[in-house]
Design a protein around this nucleic acid. Structure first.
Length: 901
RNA sequence: GGGGGCAUGGCGGAAGUGGUAGACGCAGCGCACUUAAAAUGCGCAGACGGCGACGUUGUGGGGGUUCAAGUCCCCCUGCCCCCA
């Protein structure tokens, strides 16, 4: 591949300048990029401006704060293309905002706790902390090669004690607020990783998101955060997030899953039909269908099941419970899976009409949701309908569509609205009316009440793992759960723990660490040995960046309110639910604690698409083939069998051999090419197909820019110190060529400014840069010096956010002095000059009945009547109207004239 | 099953509030430079017809609204995502 080698042995300075085809006119990113990265670092170009008079000396960066944030990475040790895309997007945003005069915070850090470090420790006997720090070091160096304008002075790592000290401090805030509690719970137990998982970490097939093993159910005493207490706020504030993608808001709303309905009490009856005093509470969103109940179903885990099961049913019920226990929630409730259940030999009384209905247990009812019991209304719920058909339970219709007869809908459940029948005093009411009145009747009769139910569960945060943030509490036999006093924070992770042991928390095995005096009574007590879910650590890191060196608090109120909410957050769609919901929850809790003064942490969210690599697969063997082993990409064949391969793009991964290493791309083309390619190839939120040929094309574009500036330099053009606008005047009007070039320049300013405002469209912004470059390529040579210099100045400033190294190099080559800090990155974003965009004549289209038939060059200020007259007089009109006057004429000034015969 | 999104040349993708479809780039073709190639520069390029100026057709398929539809409405097909 003819990549840029950088193999010349003669330094540019020693070459004679006369020959245009010299090494000095070759773009060699390998030489310039590292130099500028070091220079910028020494100049503090990415440093976050602090408020106050000291910063006022410089014109740039003293404006309103702007916070540009990428989702911080897990430090795996190697950067992949998904990271590159994420951080380049955020970097462009940060750089544009600086050029626009904003004071920019653009930080980076590490989501550094988690299982990979612990697994590496077990497999290789290394210290998880040392392993993680080494990875951080590697990744930081890789990131720096991208030329990101990150303020590294604000770097945080969640696994460092100076960070997790405050994670613990914040946990104690939750504890103090009554939002952290311990509870015995059925938990998802991962038998491979030997830990519990949050519901969110179990996939649709009931497998661990990390180990992939089937998750088991276990009862354990666990720590929870009471996110359900904020369910309403988290849902109701979603409409505030207009800068978020609609689908992310929808996903969060679905996840919270608020449903309004009623909790109704069914009294258990004995064999003679007499009440036993025991009640089964069911939750339903359809209290209006209560007269259609034909049975009540309990979750197999429901606490009353054992007591209520008739003795002759004991064996089969127990067998059924065991069977269900092996299924995941998803399997149990999937609509297409068979519903299974059995009667337990007891009955309950319908509180509305006094009827006795049988009690069942079934797999599709979950103990965790609602009350763990539902009323079965086969006529008006599809799952109940399927269940009833299967077990020959009665189906009674109590809702009919308005105006229809009652037998019209027997084929399946009628789940839409209608009018009540067979419902005693409620007959004739609409569903909505009946819901209210039946709830009212229930409240009056003591057998029901309105209730709001959420799909959202409390957040299980306990992990039986070493490499996480220790939960800062102490268990004392006499005082109970005692928070570790603030001044004793951080509770540091101890060294030398045996990590390979299975079956519980590694910390529990280190007696010297566990045994501690109770802070309350001084008696011997024991530390909590669970660590926190790493999602806790990532739920507040964006706050810490505002004040990363604070040793008295996680952040000061002043700093956090100055920088937040984050103006633009950028990251993967995979965090649409968990991380973003948890962060919103944290923000609201901390607001209620008075620690910060805003409701939502992220004003705008950009979810960038995946980076996909070209993937070859043998359709018969199912084997993936590395692109390097495919001899002819236009006819991809298996290198061994010669079979034709399937070709497609898929997310880059090792097992598919379709990954592209960012370091290799930077080595070959430089960071600027990689940045430009990624931004240009696809809109930011869409998946991006990595294509070496397109990368090559992007490199050629940067080379063209290099040559363009090189020849301008040969001509002796230098950047003007003042930057006065060469707009011409009456005595010395601009030539037509100058006007045309200026129009191209200011069109680019307007278009790119538009593309970078709010909704970011980097792909079209880059294409506008290309257009400007094309225009300059043909017109710069003939342009006057003033206009040419303006064009060059604008081109380089517009280029600066995208290809920062090249823009800076060319800026300096055109005469700016790097030593007096005249960086292209400290310039002002240009303003489009409306007078440059003005033109004397414009082309309008002549349509005949909506079809384009010709064009007309007209004065730009021609009014509708003039345009109509010109169009009617045109040859096009003569040809198509055949002498008849048009029935109708539509004129869109500056655009078209439509003649309708 | 529910909710959301998408569908435009050989390919990636452009097209404020309906107003010249295909910007920009990749791949391709032609020309110039070169002994030649690479690189570079210039040009062509939706499809069909025509030597041509042009004409017809064209944004997944079908219908509709409109002077005018990629864009708005209805139906259908396919793909993707989320929730069940």
């Amino acid at each position: 591949m003819p990549g840029p080698g950088g193999c010349g042995t003669i330094t540019p300075e020693r070459r004679p300048r006369a020959n245009p085809v010299t090494d000095s006119s070759r773009y060699r990113p390998q030489v310039i990029e590292e130099r500028w990265q070091q220079h910028w670092q020494s100049q503090g170009l990415a440093r976050t401006p602090e408020p106050g008079p000291s910063a006022a000396s410089h014109s740039v960066g003293t404006g309103e704060p702007y916070y540009a944030l990428s989702m911080f990475p897990y430090p795996s040790g190697s950067l992949h293309m998904g990271h590159v895309r994420n951080y380049v997007i955020t970097d462009v945003i940060a750089r544009v905002q600086r050029l626009r005069g904003r004071a920019v915070l653009h930080p980076m850090g590490w989501d550094a706790f988690g299982l990979p470090a612990e697994n590496a420790a077990i497999e290789r006997g290394v210290d998880p902390g040392a392993w993680t720090d080494q990875n951080i070091g590697q990744m930081r160096e890789q990131l720096k090669r991208l030329g990101l304008s990150i303020d590294w002075d604000r770097e945080v790592a969640t696994c460092h004690a100076d960070y997790y000290r405050w994670t613990q401090w914040l946990f104690l805030q939750f504890l103090d607020a009554g939002l952290a509690y311990r509870s015995e719970a059925t938990v998802n137990w991962d038998p491979i990783d030997q830990t519990v998982l949050a519901n969110e970490q179990v996939d649709g097939a009931g497998r661990s998101w990390r180990s992939g093993s089937l998750v088991e159910k276990r009862k354990l005493r666990q720590w929870f955060l009471k996110i359900t207490a904020y369910a309403d706020q988290l849902l109701d504030d979603l409409p505030k997030l207009q800068g978020w993608p609609e689908r992310v808001r929808t996903m969060q709303a679905n996840w919270i899953g608020r449903s309004t309905g009623a909790e109704l009490q069914f009294e258990v009856v004995d064999g003679d039909g007499a009440g036993t005093g025991q009640h089964i509470a069911v939750f339903t969103t359809r209290p209006d269908t209560i007269y259609g109940v034909s049975y009540v179903v309990l979750a197999p885990e429901h606490p009353l099941v054992e007591a209520l099961t008739a003795s002759e049913q004991q064996l089969s019920v127990q067998a059924f419970i065991d069977l269900v226990g092996r299924q995941s929630d998803q399997e149990r409730t999937a609509e297409d899976s068979p519903k299974r259940g059995m009667p337990i030999g007891a009955s309950a009384r319908n509180p509305a009409n006094g009827e006795l209905v049988p009690l069942w247990i079934a797999d599709y009812v979950l103990a965790e949701y609602g009350t763990g019991a539902v009323m079965g209304v086969p006529a008006h719920d599809q799952r109940d309908f399927v269940f009833a058909r299967q077990y020959e339970l009665p189906v009674r219709q109590v809702i009919i569509p308005e105006g229809s007869d009652e037998h019209a809908y027997e084929g399946g459940a009628w789940t839409a609205g209608g009018v009540l029948i067979h419902s005693g005093p409620f007959d004739g009411l609409t569903c909505a009316e009946a819901r209210q009145q039946i709830i009212a009747a229930g409240e009056a009769g003591g057998w029901g009440q309105g209730r709001v139910q959420y799909r959202l569960r409390d957040w299980l945060i306990s992990r039986q793992r070493y490499w996480g943030c220790p939960i800062p509490v102490i268990h004392c036999d006499s005082c109970g759960v005692v928070p570790v006093p603030e001044e004793q924070l951080p509770v540091e992770l101890p060294q030398g723990v045996e990590l390979a042991a299975k079956g519980g928390s590694p910390l529990a095995q280190l007696e010297s660490w566990v045994a501690v005096a109770c802070p309350c009574c001084g008696q011997s007590a024991r530390r909590e040995t669970d660590t926190m879910d790493t999602f806790i650590c990532s739920s507040w890191y964006y706050l810490r960046y505002s004040d990363p060196h604070n040793t008295a608090l996680p952040f000061s109120r002043e700093a956090v309110d100055r920088w937040l909410p984050v103006d633009q957050y950028v990251g993967g769609i995979e965090h649409a639910i968990l991380h973003l919901l948890y962060s919103r929850f944290f923000t609201k809790v901390l607001r209620d604690r008075g620690l910060l003064g805003f409701d939502e942490p992220f004003a705008r969210l950009l979810t960038q698409g995946m980076v996909q690599g070209i993937t070859y697969k043998n359709p018969h063997s199912g084997r993936y083939i590395a692109p390097a082993d495919v001899a002819d990409p236009s006819d991809p064949r298996d290198p061994i069998s010669g079979e034709v391969l399937d070709t497609f793009y898929e997310k880059m991964s090792k097992s598919k051999y379709n990954g592209v290493d960012p370091a290799g791309v930077i080595d070959r083309y430089g960071a600027d090419t990689a940045r430009m390619f990624i931004l240009f190839k696809a809109p930011p939120e869409k998946d991006l197909e990595w294509d070496d040929a397109d990368v090559e094309g992007q490199y050629r574009f940067l080379q063209r820019l290099w040559r363009l500036v090189d020849s301008a330099q040969e001509r002796g053009l230098r950047l003007a110190p003042s930057g006065a606008s060469p707009s011409g005047n009456a005595e010395a009007p601009l030539t037509e060529g100058d006007q045309e070039l200026r129009r191209a320049v200011h069109t680019a300013i307007a278009a790119i400014s538009e593309d970078l405002d709010g909704d970011y469209q980097f792909n079209t912004a880059v294409s506008e840069l290309m257009k400007l470059s094309n225009a300059m390529g043909s017109q710069l040579e003939a342009a006057s010096e003033a206009v040419a210099v303006e064009a060059l100045t604008v081109l380089l400033v517009l280029l600066a956010p995208f290809a920062p190294h090249l823009a800076e190099e060319l800026w300096q080559r055109l005469g700016a002095n790097p030593d007096d800090d005249n960086s292209v990155h400290r310039q002002r974003w240009p303003e489009a000059d409306a007078s440059a965009l003005r033109r004397d004549t414009v082309t309008v289209v002549i349509q005949i009945k909506g079809k384009v038939r010709g064009q007309l060059e007209v004065p730009a200020d021609a009014d509708a009547a003039t345009l109509e007259a010109l169009a009617l007089a045109s040859e096009v009109a003569a040809k198509w109207l055949e002498g008849q006057p048009p029935r109708r004429v539509i004129v869109v000034p500056g655009k078209l004239v439509n003649l309708v015969p």
